[in-house]
Amino acid sequence: MSPVPLIQVRELVKDFDGQRVLAGVNLDIMEGGIKVVMGPSGCGKSTLLRCLNRLVEPTSGTIHLRGQLVTGAGVDVRALRQGIGFVFQQFALYRHLTVLDNVSLALRKLRGMRRLEAEQKAMYELARLDMAAHRDKYPGQISGGQKQRVALARALAMDPAVVVMDEPTSALDPLLTREVAQLIQRLHGEKVTLLCVTHDVLLARSITEQVVFLDRGVVRAEGSIEHLSSAHPDALIRDFFGRESGA
């Protein structure tokens, strides 16, 4: 294992109209690792994710991917984005394209693959997520959980360095939380590097014990949920993690 993290975020700051959303975030993600970032809504989780692939331009601070600086000028942003698989909160599938085309579009248009080759690769990813049978359906014809799998397949098809998931359970029925956690763990088992932000303690618990707690734009705490919910000196943090500890 390389001692250098796959992704290294240092002193990341983002201001929106004079409002500080990220106030110096530090975060490391190891190759093949899984990182769960938690925090109340408005803590800057989504902004942090969007800084990684520069959908949002950080105000200051640095991000390194595989030791390469990816913030600032002179970076090939489109290449960077291709290397980060992003799964949106509402999944954001392209509504006018079939499941298969959703997954193969970027392979064809960005990787320059021929249709046949792209579709083979796309089918491989869909099969991996048990969605092969739905290849010809449109996003409007499948359930939320299925949309999420297609969105994951779309991200995985590009063989990204990391898969980023923004609130993977918020658009789904709460009953599906465990299923989502199993899916994430399966990918983890297949050596996919994962970064997941969520406010869902139940989901976090089912994925991993170690979490990062983000609040008001900085990492306030890091450690096991067990510890954060019972032994952390800050009552607010104990409260946040204690909410659903019984579940």
């Binding site: 692939n53 959908l55 960077l80 949106f88 970027a106």
Partner: peptide, 10 residues
């Protein structure tokens, strides 16, 4: 968000 997803894909 669909268009954002497009940008996010590169």
């Amino acid at each position: 968000t669909e268009l954002e997803a497009g940008r996010a894909q590169g």
